[in-house]
Design a protein around this nucleic acid. Sequence first.
DNA 1: GTTGGCACTCGAGTCTACCGAGTGCCAGAC
DNA 2: GTCTGGCACTCGGTAGACTCGAGTGCCAAC
Lengths: 336, 336
Amino acid sequence: MDSELDDRKAAILRAVVEEYIETAQPVGSGHVAGRPDVPVSSATVRNELAALEKEGFLVQPHTSAGRIPTDKGYRFFVDRLQAGPLDPAARQQVREFFAKAHGELEQMLQDTSRLLSQMTSYAAVVVSPPTEAASLRSVQVVSLAPKLALVVAVLSNGSVVKHSLELAEEVAPEQLGALSAHLSAHLVGRVALDMPVLPATGDELLDRLAGLATHALSDTTGPDHEQVFLGGASRMASAFDAVDTVRSVLGALEQQYVVVSLLRDVLDRGLSVAIGHEHGLLPLAECAVVVAPYGGAGGDGQGTIGVLGPTRMNYPQALAAVAVVSQRLDRRLEEG
Amino acid sequence: MDSELDDRKAAILRAVVEEYIETAQPVGSGHVAGRPDVPVSSATVRNELAALEKEGFLVQPHTSAGRIPTDKGYRFFVDRLQAGPLDPAARQQVREFFAKAHGELEQMLQDTSRLLSQMTSYAAVVVSPPTEAASLRSVQVVSLAPKLALVVAVLSNGSVVKHSLELAEEVAPEQLGALSAHLSAHLVGRVALDMPVLPATGDELLDRLAGLATHALSDTTGPDHEQVFLGGASRMASAFDAVDTVRSVLGALEQQYVVVSLLRDVLDRGLSVAIGHEHGLLPLAECAVVVAPYGGAGGDGQGTIGVLGPTRMNYPQALAAVAVVSQRLDRRLEEG
DNA sequence: GTTGGCACTCGAGTCTACCGAGTGCCAGAC
DNA sequence: GTCTGGCACTCGGTAGACTCGAGTGCCAAC
């Protein structure tokens, strides 16, 4: 890495990033030179700015304009960021939220995405923990129509999965009862992901239905069945002024699998922030995302939360918000 | 009503609306005079335009510009609209969609909102049928943690509702089993909305838990528990050029109860189209909505579908799309 | 009642000039 | 050497002048 910048360059770069995040205007040497941590003249700053531009940390929209950070510039800034504490008002807001948060997991995650969005004034995403790691607490098959039944399973993390079964012939309610009992006996307590082949019972119809049901269950509990809760997408409209950018960003957010794989990818690479082109998604090239995992302690699998904003987002605030919310969510899930 | 327009005025108004919907530009007398159904000179058209403006059907953005329809102008246009047939390509698209649509109700409704959005290139909303009218097919209480249980109910329309129960003391699994049986015996087959007070069993704990559970169920199956599926919200970004409008519209769409009550309100007033200020929602003042009910035949309650676009939306297309999709959805739900 | 003609209006686009924030570079000071 | 003040230069943005053209309202004539 050539990101060995001397102290002064680092201070100047940080100043430019901070100023640009605040004003959204290209930053000139004069604005930086005034600062207490940059005790040199604007001429010196200009020389340094030129050097920083040559090294790829800054760009000039055009000659005789100020500088704007590149993705690389933001990256340098974020990497040196010591996590500042969240401001007390926001802290209080989080505390109150989790004091009141009760009831269904899904509802809470949805509300959490709203909370995060409100705290940061960017869009927020909460991905539920995958159901793979959870164990089955209950399995039941319910008849809906003569040739239609529904498998309903309750998992240890409180989520409920269901899948309809289209039956080739009519099945008597008693047989569905026997099926439910058979499935319960062999599946309850097992990890949801590995659906075993059930032992034959001698009853051909029962065995066939059991096969259908286990197949259906592994369909709905397998990977790629995370739920995505998106909050505050409308705030992306204020984050960009080009209406085209807004549309492409919102379009990308509508595709849940894009969001899920983005967050997963970032975490897999050991990052907590991905800026602009660092993640490969073209429609989100002007966005940065701040992510954190949550859960996983109780063996129930990890979920992810994230904040999505423009690359010139308020990183300290976003990092602090994501950190504190993920911690609280952790604690909450451990309590059950 | 003063909307007694003679034939020529009506034809001119229709021409202006059509032209404006197509071009998004103020329409001048010259463009209208050329048409086959307006066989008069532009001077005559000008006189009529001035009259239409005085009666409130049109406005002029500024002197010496063409005319733009008002909400009242669109209303007149829509009321005289004879429902044209959907173009064959879209018809085919719908057919294919419903041929493939299988599985869960929720998934299908979500996909339907995407379909509608794609057909019209506006945002689309699907509100699930309320669970009030459905009957209970199964009730079960499952233990999640020592002091936490989950009531899970399956309804006749295939939806599954759940509600967590926070218990004051630890309850043995056998007792939850007894509770499930007790609830099943008295609730299965009943309409979800009217939860009765269960007869006393002599077991004080059981009765107390049963009370908790029925209360929880009426909580989740009562009114205001419709699910809302929103598709293609990002398309609203292209519908307006003011970024502020986009943000306020998207913000309104994020609040589900706003959407639900908007659609319900429109249907209650016997309308299938609400334009601009006709519905009272300020953030959606520049939007029009085309709605239709679906379902309700099997006694399972009516749901609603709708298309939301700018007031200058393509009404014939939207009306046709909404009509055909709601019909198909109807048929689909009757099949089960 | 309808029409062609005409004077008028006003937004949009083009061109110009100007201002000012910002740059790069250089010569001199520390 | 490194920093700094000075200076010439660049270039986007704004404001004013001008033109163009689509559109209007009105009136006299058919």
